[in-house]
Amino acid sequence: MFGFLLKRVSVIIPTFIGVTLLTFALIRLIPGDPVELMAGERGVDPVRHARLLAEMGLDQPLLVQYWHYLTGIFHGDLGISVVTREPVIREFFTLFPATLELSFCAIVIAIVVGLPAGIIAAVRRGKVTDYTVMGMSLTGYSMPIFWWGLLLILLFSVTLGWTPVSGRISATYWVDEATGFMLIDSLLSDEPGAFLSTLHHLILPAFVLATIPLAVIARMTRSAMLEVLREDYVLVARAKGLAMPLVVCVHALRNALIPVITVIGLQVGVLMAGAILTETIFSWPGVGKWLLDSIRRRDYPSVQGGILLVSCIVIFVNLTVDIFYGVVNPRIRHQR
């Protein structure tokens, strides 16, 4: 087990170094002088220019720069935002709870809807239900989610007036930021309608972000379930007289879940990419929108730090899933 852990962890080290090389290269590959690019049309006087260059360490040899960058990362120093003059890492982690909350709700929706849908489709294989679920899942998989978000705003916010268009909570509530997770903060606050308002704001963006993972989970569950339902032990369980729902939920599901869990883990990357689009449409104050805004504002230290941190999160979650997979499935663990 220890060897397995060590092996998995050691595999991500080159990946991590690669990502740092990429983000390191990012700021240096942009054509033109980074300071002048960031200053824009206003221009910048030579003294300030030199000071900014030195501040970002861009006046040193590349290898030294990379070394400083790498050691900086391990000290939690990702540079300073050019726009707000705040440390990038602080900006990121102030906004990250919003993204985490949104992504968490999205993956919960995706699992709660996708898993049963996939199971039902597998059990009723070749029937109308199966075709409906698979058709919807293929449509969801092909969905441009930025448009899907606009469409749902058009329907639920503009036409029906059920949900708000943007933000995390109605402006009439003042909620103290204790955890950064609005669902928890609004529950802790003594304002009566705050939690409902938060839920109201969350439901549409979370559903939009859930669309693609939902479709993927439903497809994967169906095919894993079909595979398992063919096994002898399912037949034995049926022959013993157990009811089909019991066999499906107890005997089959446990084994079908293994590939599904991997797929759920892989959705983290999808969620992070989707968050950029979803947050932009719903003006959700999370890291996705911040990253895009930083690109538009040419705030390159923020872009660099943001991409690095998001990548690290994705790598870390994938590693966790990998290890978890090894724990539940000994065959993986003992493979060379």
């Binding site: 990946t15 690669g18 990502v19 990429l22 992070m272 990419a273 690109i295 390159y300 998001v310």
Partner: peptide
């Protein structure tokens, strides 16, 4: 394959964003 792993580790849209930031 290690280089490919790095590309795979990043969400495609995020990597595309990074590259477009460089290329314009």
């Amino acid at each position: 394959m290690r280089a490919m792993d790095i590309i795979m580790a990043l969400p495609s849209l995020l990597l595309a964003l990074a590259i477009v930031t460089i290329l314009g």
